[in-house]
Structures are given as structure tokens and as C-alpha cells.
Design a protein around this nucleic acid. Structure first.
Lengths: 330, 330
DNA sequence: TCCTAGCACTATAATTTTACGAGTGCTAAC
DNA sequence: GTTAGCACTCGTAAAATTATAGTGCTAGGA
């Protein structure tokens, strides 16, 4: 169990280290506390025994350990205050009633990335459980057409398709067939439904049925379930802990990797959650702070990704504020 | 005027430097040439006087100067041979008759980026001169709809629009109005045409005309003319000349910057063109190799971006091959 | 006239040496 | 429980040392 003063020492070290990015000595801390550096040193030693602080070498100042950050986030961080400037910048975006929610979110995360110098991520709800709302076909020329697929939640995807010797009429018939028989099916199941419900009957109505069937089958089997938007990856280049090119490369690779992001998305906790260091599955020096949001049918995950040495208070507050704005957006 | 042997010395230095990334000494060159290192040193001195070679310091080996690379590219490079493996990988993509051209291009550039470890760029033809082919509207719920715009060349864009108290019928009327009056107009001019041809008459047919007019006006005025795809930016992190984080940051910023890419796109030369070092407008250590392509209505620009110390022969050959494949694609 | 062997010379890179200082742990006194 | 004092540690930065890869130049040979 930590004493009140020990907690204060830890808090001060975390907060200073976040700003200065170099080990914090007892003298600096003692200036903020009304006690001598020797006293602080004793507390530091105790905190080190508790694995909350670390030394970079025998006679250096202290830096927070992963557990130290965890303790800070879980017990010490204060979330009451919200930077007025930060708040204003976000409110302007949500005040614009014209803007669809998706655009508000994108813009907000762009703004947050610029304000904080951390990267941000929106993970849209995977379209797996979206239902097919409508398909449209726009013929471009004799053997090229665009197939557009819209889901019930407004997810749109389009694909160019090559056809040969297929009449416009046949295309229209096929589209009608699909719009009549398959609309309302979960996107995931459309391919199989095409196979069992369209394939057997399409021959009756359509001459070049095989080609058309294949074309649509491909459109749906390629339907992308990923809906990921990472903003401000280059912000990592500003942080001293990532001056090493190999580290940067690893982080960029991870952020491009659907697998890693899926893990973040699949966490079912709806509240703000903080993954510190190795918990991030990205890099031991990286922290991910994420939350889910839901507004009617729209749902998804927001995340802010930066160095472990992150301004936790500010980021959590920002994310909380953003989540609330999204969920209250009419 | 260079002697034959001097040209060979320059050629060897460029080619070795491309591989080894460190200054090349006379001894290494003399091994490939049947003459002594002293002779090579004399030639090197002459090449340095001609500003084709540089030293990193008084007693170092030589590296090619920007003019040296230029001389190499313009006079020394041999393009006959094409790596069989490279060729195969690309041919597989174009052999797939099913695949639309745009997908072939994207995949090829992905493959080329992985093969060469350089970044690649496709700059689609700007949609400025595309003609409006069709618009479609899919209502999602009472006050949300998706507007889909398709151009004559198959460019598709969609946007979510918020509406309040607008009847489905009014929406349909507006869509018909646009599809009847404006289809065939260059995308650039749609906004003004909306203003002069739709705005005056829409009131006659549609109740909530103001809201609908504004919605469509916004869709078209936001129509993105940019169609840029940069692949493999992180490849820069593998090159020793870019181990400096600031340099990387600058390059990434430039590659995200439409301005810089527009310059590449706006060069009117249809053939392969090489921008070496400062000519690239990206970084003095970067080279851009670009070409335009055209296949029927589809046109655009391909570029490979890497270090100045680039395998010019291979990249130019690859790009030439790719361009031919695209242009011959039925 | 062109080529080459030989040698003195030079800048860098790698290694060692030195000096300094920020910060610690411990002890003893308050 | 707190603090002043002091010896000690380690890392960083600067200075000195060494090794080496490569040059330019000269003089002799084809």
C-alpha cells in the first residue's frame, strides 16, 4: 500500500516524464512537494521496490514502469478538467448539423491527431452484419459496367466488372432478380444465397447467365469487411522514443496490419480502455486508448495511439468527450 | 567528351554504389576493368572535373553526383534485358482477363513496390473532364440518404446526406430532374449548371426544394478530383540514406501532399521520365521515375519513387513493361 | 603518349582515455 | 519520520589515439 506522498511522487514523475521525456530526479520532484530530495529519494526507492518506477541505469533518475503507468491511469489520473481550446475545436465540428456523423468522426480524429500529435484510428463497424439494401448497375460501355452495392447502414461499395456480349437487358434482369430475392440478406450470406437462390433460376430469364452470375458472385465475395482509417501515422516520427527507424517500421507495419487492429476492435468493453506498452500488441513503447461508440445503427471503435509516455489525462478526456458527442448526435 | 573507359568507370561506379550504398574506390573498379587502379584513379579525377563524380571527403572513394546519375540515365544505362522473374509476376496479373484495368494497375504497383523496395504511385486521370453519367439515390432511413455519382469513365463517388421532412417522392423527382437535364455535363461544370438550370425550375416540382438543392450542390462541389494511390511508403525506411527521422518525415509529408504529386502528373511527356534528386521536388536524395499511360478513356500517371541511388535500369524497364501491358490491355 | 607501380599523405571511423555532473544510496543527526 | 551531507556510480561528451581505406603524384616502362 502506498502512502499519499508516494502516490504524489509517482503522479509527479509520470506527468513530468510525459512532458520532458527524460528520467526524473528527486530534486525536481521535491521542488513540487514540500519535502526534501532525500525524502523523495526514499519514496522513489519504495516505488521502485513496488515495480512502479524504473531506473535507466544505477544512478539515473526514475521513469515510470508499465505498472507505474497502469497505477497512474487506474488510480491517480484526474479527469475533471477539459482544455477549453480542445473542446471548442471539437464542438465546432459537431455543431454543424449538416455534416453526416461519419464525416464528423473523421474530422474530429483528424483534429485530435493534430492537437495531440498522436495517431488516431476509426474502426467502422464491420459490415459483416449489414444487410444488403440495394444494388445498382451503371453500364459504362459495351463490356464494362459498375456494380454498386449499398447496405442498410449506408455502407457503399462499388466495383468495375468486365463483361462480353452481354445485353443491357440481361443485366437489368439479373439486377432485378437480386434486388427482389436477396435484398435484406446479411452481406456475409449473400454469396451463398446467390448460389442457392439465384444460380438455379437465373438461366430461365437471362441468356448470358453464367457470366453475369460470376460477375455478381465476385462482387459480393470481395465485399470488404474492413473499414479502417488511421490518421496521423507520421506523428510517431515526432516522438523521441521512435527516432529509431526500425522501431518506426515495426509500428507502421502493425498499424497497416488488419490483424492487430482487429484485436482492438474485438474488445467488447464499451468504455474507455487503456492498453499500455506490451498490452498494445504494437510495441512496448506504444499505448493505445480506445472506446466503442454507438449512435443508432452506426457503431464502431475509436482509438488514439501514441507513445507509452502519453498525456493520459488529456487523451482520455478527449476521447470521452468525443464519444459523448457522437452518441448524442441526433 | 568522355573516353569509352571513363564512361565505363562512371557506369561501374553508379552500379556498384546503387548496390553497396557506400563510396566506391579505384581498386574495386579496376578489378572489373582490365587496367590498374592508378589508371582508374586518373579517370575518376577527370570524371570529378566534369562534375559527374563526387567525394564525400578528401580521401574517400567516389559517389555519383546528380549530373553523374543524369549522364548514366541518358547515355549509359542498358535496357535490353528484363529480369524474367519480374516479368512473370506482372504478366500473371495482366493475364487474368477477368480483372478490370484499374485493379491490374493497383496490383502491379503493389507487386513492383515489393519487388524493388521502392514506393509506387498511381495518379488517376483527374476527374475534371469526366462527364456525369448518372446519379443514384438510396434512402437509408427517414432523414438519411446516400447519393451516388457515376461518371462516364467509371469513376464512382458517394456521400451520405442528411435531410429532414423530405418525401421520398421529392427526392426521386430531383434525381430525375438531374438525370434528365445534367447528365453528360463535365463534372467540373455540374455545380454551376445545377445553379442555372435546376435551381430556377426545381421549385415547380419539388416541395422541399431548397434542402434538396443544397444537398446535391454540396455533393458535387465536394466531388474529389484527386485520385491518388501511394503504395509502399514505408519502403523508404529500408534505405540507409533515410535513416534520419527528419528526412523521412519530410518525404512522407511531400508524398501526402497533393501539390507535389500534381507536378508529376502535369508533366505532359508520355514517355518514361526520370527526375533525379532535387528535380524530384521531394528530397535531394530521392528520384522519381514516371510515365503516363492511356488505354481508351482510362489515362493516368505511374511513378516509382525511391532513393537517388536507385536501380535505374530495372525500374525503367519495369515501368516500360507495365506501361506497355496497360496500353495493350484490351 | 598512355599506363602503372610505389609511396607519402589525409580524413574518417573505431577505440580508448579523461573529465564532469546529475543523481543515487546510505548514514547520522534533528 | 525527515533531512543534510557525502561518497559513489554511471553515462555522456570531449579529447586523444590508432587503424585503414583511399587518394594524388611522381617516375619509370610500354
Amino acid at each position: 500500500m502506498l502512502t499519499k506522498r508516494q502516490e504524489n511522487v509517482l503522479k509527479l514523475i509520470v506527468e513530468h516524464y510525459v512532458k520532458l521525456a527524460k528520467p526524473i530526479g528527486s530534486k525536481l520532484v521535491s521542488k513540487k512537494l514540500k519535502c526534501s530530495s532525500a525524502t523523495v529519494r526514499n519514496d522513489m526507492a519504495a516505488l521502485e521496490d513496488a515495480h512502479l518506477l524504473e531506473k535507466t541505469h544505477t544512478s539515473s533518475g526514475r521513469i515510470p514502469s508499465e505498472e507505474g503507468y497502469r497505477y497512474y491511469v487506474d488510480n491517480l489520473m484526474e479527469l475533471k478538467k477539459m482544455n477549453a481550446e480542445d473542446m471548442l475545436k471539437l464542438q465546432i465540428i459537431f455543431h454543424n448539423q449538416q455534416l453526416p456523423l461519419a464525416d464528423c468522426i473523421t474530422k474530429s480524429l483528424q483534429v485530435i491527431s493534430d492537437m495531440t500529435n498522436y495517431a488516431t484510428i476509426v474502426l467502422g463497424s464491420s459490415s459483416h452484419d449489414n444487410l444488403l439494401k440495394q444494388i445498382e448497375v451503371v453500364p459504362i460501355d459495351a463490356n464494362k459496367m459498375i456494380v454498386i452495392v449499398v447496405t442498410d447502414r449506408g455502407h457503399v461499395e462499388h466495383k468495375e466488372v468486365k463483361l462480353e456480349y452481354v445485353s443491357l437487358e440481361d443485366v437489368k434482369k439479373t439486377v432485378n432478380l437480386i434486388n427482389n430475392l436477396i435484398v435484406g440478406t446479411p452481406i456475409d450470406e449473400v454469396s451463398t444465397k446467390l448460389e442457392y437462390e439465384i444460380k438455379p433460376v437465373i438461366g430461365k430469364y437471362v441468356t448470358q447467365h453464367e457470366q453475369l452470375y460470376n460477375a455478381f458472385y465476385n462482387v459480393f465475395s470481395d465485399f470488404s469487411s474492413h473499414n479502417v482509417n488511421v490518421v496521423g501515422k507520421t506523428k510517431f516520427l515526432d516522438q523521441p522514443e521512435f527516432s529509431n527507424v526500425d522501431k518506426i517500421k515495426n509500428i507502421f507495419d502493425k498499424l497497416d496490419n488488419e490483424e492487430v487492429l482487429r484485436e482492438i476492435k474485438e474488445d467488447q468493453d464499451n468504455n474507455i480502455k487503456v492498453y499500455i506498452g506490451h498490452e498494445s500488441n504494437i510495441d512496448d513503447d506504444v499505448t493505445v486508448i480506445k472506446t466503442k461508440f454507438r449512435n443508432g445503427a452506426d457503431e464502431g471503435t475509436l482509438a488514439i495511439v501514441g507513445p507509452k509516455r502519453m498525456d493520459y489525462e488529456r487523451v482520455v478526456t478527449l476521447l470521452e468527450f468525443l464519444k459523448d458527442n457522437i452518441e448524442d448526435n441526433n
